[in-house]
Design a protein around this nucleic acid. Structure first.
Lengths: 195, 195
DNA sequence: TGAATAGATGCAGTCAATGTAGTAATGTGA
DNA sequence: TCACATTACTACATTGACTGCATCTATTCA
């Protein structure tokens, strides 16, 4: 019952923030304004979100755990590139099913694509995801000696997919088209790496 | 003669900063401290560097202009992936010749690989570079209709190369080895894309 | 020499983010 | 029903990056 109150404040903050961002832009909006609009203290804002960026992107997660699990449950006969390909494919499906499908309001996408701070935030998450996937791969393929090669492969994969997504979104593609673009990009990298 | 004074202050600031970062870490060091150590006012610091990040990475540029020029001077018979490959190859040579070769002190590399703020800074530059390269490619290949495909290709290329560099650096490779790793990564992506 | 220019400064102010201490409501156990 | 603890939230103060503005001073050049 306390939970509800908390989630309500959280959502009020998000709503207030997005609305203000839409009207005045991201940088022109201060945390104090958001808090005021949501009728809470500035301090409370940071109780719900670690940074100003998080209020936009908080639940725009990329399900890395899923990928890691897939990699760790690899079949003994699957090659490293194959496993990576499946993992990425599943991540794409996940994103398609949640973030892209359920709206992910235009404002947010717009912000994500235009505000440098938010782009940096996203890339940071992406980099983190890359690292964790590389680690998982190395754990599952200890015989593969070359970290750098694995790193490069994963980097290529993620770079291709996110770049494709970004350009598709910027172009105004539908969620289905965006997903298709991501799959195509992943496919091209996978194809080449599996020889 | 004024120039000299200015460059001297700038370099004093860089030296003071790197030293302080090495001793106390990046976040624990304030701009005020750096300025004090360099015997200038805090305000002056921001006269030389737009942000605290820039003092570490200021001249660790990735020469995008070069890549753009190469792309724009493409031979009429060269395919898009080929031109991209040459452009990236040249960028790698450039980096190898300047940043990597001339020291690029260990402290800096260490900082770049560990401090979140600096990673974000780097990624921002990278994203910017990607965008400009994609734009250049589209200008030079107006007949290539699919922005998203080009975006994906460039994303894969940059992702592979930077990721390879990061892992090679983290492993403690020599500059030559790092360069080789970048080339190898670029080569693999290029190979696949040129069919 | 005198005027313009440009690097450097001090100061006040904005804004994100954190630490501290405290209030008030909501839960729980006796 | 009365302590009690927990917890969302608040007010206040502070740090630290960064900016705007007025000013000072040392070149540079006419």
């Amino acid at each position: 019952m306390r939970e509800r109150k908390k989630r309500r404040t959280r959502e009020t903050l998000i709503a207030a923030a997005v609305e203000l961002f839409r009207r005045q832009g991201y940088e022109a909006t201060t945390v104090a304004q958001i808090a005021a609009a949501a009728d809470v203290s500035t301090r409370t804002f940071f109780l719900h979100f670690p940074t100003k960026e998080d209020v936009v992107l908080a639940d725009a997660g990329m399900r890395v755990e899923l990928a890691v699990r897939i990699i760790e449950g690899r079949g003994a006969d699957e090659s490293l590139p194959d496993v990576l390909a499946t993992a990425v494919e599943r991540m794409i499906s996940e994103v398609a099913g949640s973030d892209l499908a359920t709206g992910m309001a235009d404002v947010r996408v717009e912000l994500m694509l235009t505000v440098p701070d938010l782009q940096a935030w996203m890339l940071r998450r992406l980099l983190d995801a890359q690292r964790r996937i590389v680690d998982a791969l190395r754990r599952s393929y200890p015989e593969e000696g070359d970290v750098v090669a694995v790193g490069a492969l994963v980097g290529a994969m993620m770079g291709a997919v996110t770049s494709a997504a970004a350009y598709a979104l910027r172009r105004g593609d539908t969620p289905e088209e965006v997903t298709a673009a991501m799959r195509a990009a992943a496919g091209r990298v996978a194809l080449s790496s599996s020889r």
